[in-house]
């Protein structure tokens, strides 16, 4: 089955991973900007990173028939450096016309601090002013519920936001309901220990239905599995879900969401 991974950090993965993803049916992916594992020191460091996301990775992916799309921001982990964050936000428009840029992301909260909220709101304002879609990171573990509610407060408090153009990622059992109820898209991240297993993701699909719901591997430089979506496909098949129902979650939903971005020039495998 063809699928799209809507959240994966390929700058952290080897070229062999691109090959494996292609063999398992991945035909497109989107890569939000995120934390490098250390705090970057200057706006030029981000400028180089954005060049990697918009120039290098699309070429690497294309070697294996995978279309690469991306999102730009400074990650919430670096938002405590407010002055650097503002420099990066001011620089991002240099890249918004690059052909694989889908929007602003993954913005969000990490430890739910005042500075993180301030920089989140400034990213949202940037997205609105440039008519960009938004991809949102929700915090980890004990911070997730509080942070997700804070993010929803900020989004719902801005009347300019088009909720159908916002993806709130890393939802779990206690946050998926408020996100979907508010009219946003929701993403489930398949991390075995700190987020969601394929089994629990399948439970949420059965409970909430496939509307505005997608799944991702969020594969990066930490413990993660870039081929997690095929694991979910297998789990759904084991439970007796139809191929059409599975395809909706892992292929059609990300495609429908991304098609709201003017740069999503996706060519389906059957039309290549």
């Amino acid at each position: 089955m063809y699928y799209i991974d809507p959240h994966i950090h390929m700058v952290s993965r080897t070229t062999d991973d691109y090959e494996t993803l292609a063999k398992m049916g991945c035909v497109a992916l989107s890569e939000p900007a995120f934390w490098a594992g250390f705090d970057r020191g200057s706006v030029d460091s981000f400028r180089d990173y954005f060049r990697q996301l918009t120039e290098t990775e699309p070429k690497r992916a294309a070697q294996y028939g995978i279309q690469h799309f991306t999102w730009l921001c400074i990650n919430a982990k670096e938002a405590e450096n407010v002055s650097l964050s503002r420099e990066v936000i001011a620089m991002i428009p240099e890249f918004l016309d690059r052909p694989n840029v889908l929007g602003i992301g993954e913005i969000g909260l990490n430890k739910n601090t005042k500075n993180e909220a301030t920089i989140f709101l400034e990213h949202v304002d940037l997205a609105v002013r440039h008519d960009q879609q938004i991809l949102i990171h929700t915090p980890h573990l004990e911070d997730k519920y509080q942070g997700t509610r804070m993010i929803l407060d900020m989004l719902c408090g801005d009347t300019r936001i088009q909720r159908h153009r916002v993806l709130v990622d890393h939802v779990e059992e206690h946050t998926i309901g408020p996100v979907l109820d508010a009219g946003f898209w929701a993403g489930m991240t398949l991390y075995p220990v700190t987020k969601c297993t394929p089994q629990r993701a399948a439970d949420m699909i059965e409970r909430f239905g496939p509307e505005r719901l997608m799944a991702n591997s969020a594969g990066d430089w930490g413990p993660s599995k870039p081929t997690a979506i095929p694991d979910l496909i297998l789990e759904l098949r084991r439970r007796g879900h139809s191929e059409a129902a599975i395809r909706r979650v892992v292929y059609e939903n990300p495609r429908t969401f991304f098609e709201q971005s003017r740069h999503f020039a996706f060519v389906a495998p059957e039309n290549r």
């Binding site: 573990l141 004990e142 997730k144 519920y145 509080q146 509610r149 206690h174």
Partner: peptide
Amino acid sequence: QLLFSRQY
């Protein structure tokens, strides 16, 4: 999940 979560 809520048991292991900080209060909102």
